[in-house]
Computed example of a mutant assay.
Amino acid sequence: MKAFLYESQNARVKFGVGFLKEVGNELKELGGKRALVIATPEQRELANEVATLLGDLCAGIYTEAIQHVPRESIGQSMHVVQELQIDSFVPVGGGSSIGLAKALALETSFPILAIPTTYAGSEMTPVWGITENGQKKTGKNMIVKPKTVIYDPNLTVTLPPSLTVTSGMNAIAHCAEGLYAENANPVISIMAEEGIRAVSSCLPRILENPEDMDARSEALYGTWMGGTVLGSVGMALHHKLCHVLGGNYKLQHSETHTVILPYAIWYNSTYAPEAMARIARAIGSEVDDVAGAIFDLSKSLGVAVSLKEIGMKKEDLDEAAVIATRNPYYNPRPIDGSAIRSLLEYAFIGERPVQGRTL
Rank of each mutant, 00 (worst) to 15 (best):
Tyr180Lys: 09
Asn141Ile: 09
Val80Ala: 07
Asn185His: 10
Ile112Lys: 04
Gln135Ala: 07
Ala120Tyr: 00
Pro126Trp: 04
Asn183Thr: 05
Lys147His: 13
His174Gly: 02
Val90Asn: 12
Thr63Val: 10
Glu64His: 04
Ile112Tyr: 06
Trp128Thr: 15
Pro70Met: 02
Cys175Leu: 05
Pro160Trp: 00
Gln67Pro: 12
Val127Asn: 11
Ala65Val: 07
Ala101Arg: 04
Asn154Ala: 13
Thr131Phe: 02
Val144Ile: 12
Ala101Lys: 03
Asn170Tyr: 04
Asp152Leu: 03
Val165Thr: 08
Asn170Pro: 08
Gln76Asn: 14
Val144Tyr: 09
Leu155Arg: 06
His68Val: 09
Thr63Tyr: 06
Asn170Ser: 05
Gln85His: 12
Val165Ile: 08
Ile150Lys: 14
Ser96Gln: 02
Asn183Gly: 11
Gln76Ile: 11
Asp152Met: 07
Met142Lys: 14
Glu72Val: 15
Thr158Asp: 01
Thr148Ile: 15
Glu83Gln: 08
Pro70Glu: 09
Glu72Thr: 13
Thr108Lys: 08
Gly75Lys: 02
Asn154Gly: 15
Ile143Ser: 15
Phe110Trp: 11
Val80Cys: 05
Leu163Ser: 07
Leu155Glu: 14
Gln82Val: 11
Val80Met: 06
Ile115Asp: 02
Lys136Val: 03
Tyr62Arg: 15
Ile143Trp: 00
Ala171Asp: 09
Glu107Trp: 00
Ile112Glu: 04
Ser97Cys: 01
Leu104Pro: 10
Ser88Lys: 12
Glu83Ser: 11
Glu123Asn: 13
Gly168Ile: 06
Thr138Asn: 08
Ser122Cys: 03
Ala181Tyr: 01
Ser97Val: 02
Ser122Tyr: 00
Ala181Lys: 14
Asn170Cys: 07
Val149Arg: 09
Ile112Pro: 12
Phe89Glu: 04
Phe110Leu: 08
Gly134Ser: 08
Ala184Arg: 15
Glu132Pro: 10
Leu100Trp: 00
Trp128Tyr: 13
Asp152Tyr: 02
